[in-house]
Amino acid sequence: MKHDETAGMAHPLEDLVRMDRIPHIWCPGCGIGSVFTSCLTAVKQTNIPYNQFTMVSGIGCSGRGAGYINIDSFHTTHGRAIPFASGIKMARPDLNVIVFSGDGDLFAIGGNHFIHAARRNMDLTVICVNNLTYGMTGGQVAATTPFKARSSTTALGNPDTPFNLPLLAYASGATYVARWTMLHARDLADCIQEAILRRGFSFIEVLSPCPINYGRRNREKTLETLKKYHDNTIVKNGASPTELEVDFNKGVILGKFIDIEKPTCDEVYRRMYRPPEETTENRKSR
């Protein structure tokens, strides 16, 4: 028997994973695990103690993220990760609050919460795994499914136009907007790290394959999807959000598009509403 050199070695992210919940539920060829790895790597790279983080997810395949990270983590109801996270943030502004969820969760049923949290510049790091479909329920059309793409509820092709998510985030008031694919693991980890370390509403879209429920119906094998992520993408930091629709024939633009400094929701609330801290000095003067 060949000697296994990895025997007894711990995975570098093991301290951040609930190892007692492995194996995870994600299918072979799914990209969520890679996105999740980049996210955990980013958390680690910040060197911030883990108990100063919390993760909130909604429902769906990506929504299972919160169940695997070994910090205080919340798997909420469908679409409601952002308002749950907003409650945490406003009550404990010192915490780093990460929302890890999918496109169906964040942009269809949860769309209203997304635009309002962005408008308020709620200090959250929102990571959206965009696999263009509702994976967990078997591949129905989503608000991100490309025009004419097939799904279990659009057998003849999607008649609707999908969202351009970075444009929606920017128009809603997000102060940090970026997009990567799960293939760009290092860029993505660095991007999430930067988003965690800055203050404000940060939105990162991550394109990720769903071979079982999207690829199969659209005659696209996993490796072909990854090849598209490699060959048909262009890194263009600072690109205008108006040119960011997901069209692999034209080429999909990746990078960091928006990075604006603006006071966050909790900061402004504190400044405008909380009375100034009482000091010994002003107490005496009364």
């Binding site: 909130v56 205080d72 919340f74 909420t76 109801t77 409601r80 952002i82 308002p83 749950f84 996270a85 907003s86 409650g87 945490i88 943030k89 406003m90 009550a91 404990r92 915490l95 209203n112 919460h113 309002h116």
Partner: peptide
Amino acid sequence: IAAMTSILGAAWT
């Protein structure tokens, strides 16, 4: 929906 959800998040702090 958001109002009710926010108080659960805050409660866990």
